[in-house]
Amino acid sequence: MSVFAGLVERLADLLQPLFHASAAAAIVLFTVAVVPLAAALYVVTSTAWSAVERAVLYR
């Protein structure tokens, strides 16, 4: 193994926990930010659909 390959391997070993922490942070961010937005979009869309449906059916 060359010296450069050894350094790259050592650097990868040192940075591995950082990547795992970043992945965990991304999952938390997705859960906290995107999931409530999706739920709100669902509620708004469902309410609008129901209102239009009632307006059309009860004319």
Score class of each variant (00 low, 15 high):
V44E: 08
V34G: 02
V3P: 05
V43Y: 08
S46W: 10
A33C: 12
E9M: 05
V3F: 13
L18C: 08
P17Y: 01
S46I: 03
A25I: 04
A40T: 05
R10M: 03
L11F: 11
L15G: 09
A40K: 04
A33M: 06
L15M: 12
A23V: 01
E53R: 15
V3M: 11
H20W: 05
T47I: 09
A38E: 08
A23C: 06
T31P: 00
S22C: 12
P17I: 00
F19G: 10
V8N: 11
V34N: 06
S2D: 15
A25S: 06
A25F: 05
W49I: 13
L15E: 04
A40F: 08
V34S: 03
R59A: 14
G6M: 11
R59V: 09
E9F: 03
R10Y: 04
R54W: 07
G6F: 03
S46P: 02
A48H: 06
H20Y: 07
L18S: 12
L29F: 06
Y42W: 12
S22N: 13
A51M: 07
A40G: 06
A12H: 05
V8H: 08
M1H: 14
D13N: 14
L37M: 14
G6P: 03
A26T: 01
V52L: 13
A55Q: 09
M1W: 11
E53M: 09
A26K: 00
A25D: 04
S2G: 15
E9A: 14
F4S: 13
A40N: 06
V35I: 10
L15F: 01
S46G: 07
V34Y: 08
A55G: 09
S46V: 05
R54L: 13
L7H: 10
A12R: 06
L7M: 13
L41I: 02
L41V: 04
V35C: 02
W49A: 14
Y58E: 15
A12T: 02
A39F: 07
A33T: 01
A26M: 00
V34R: 02
S22L: 15
A26I: 00
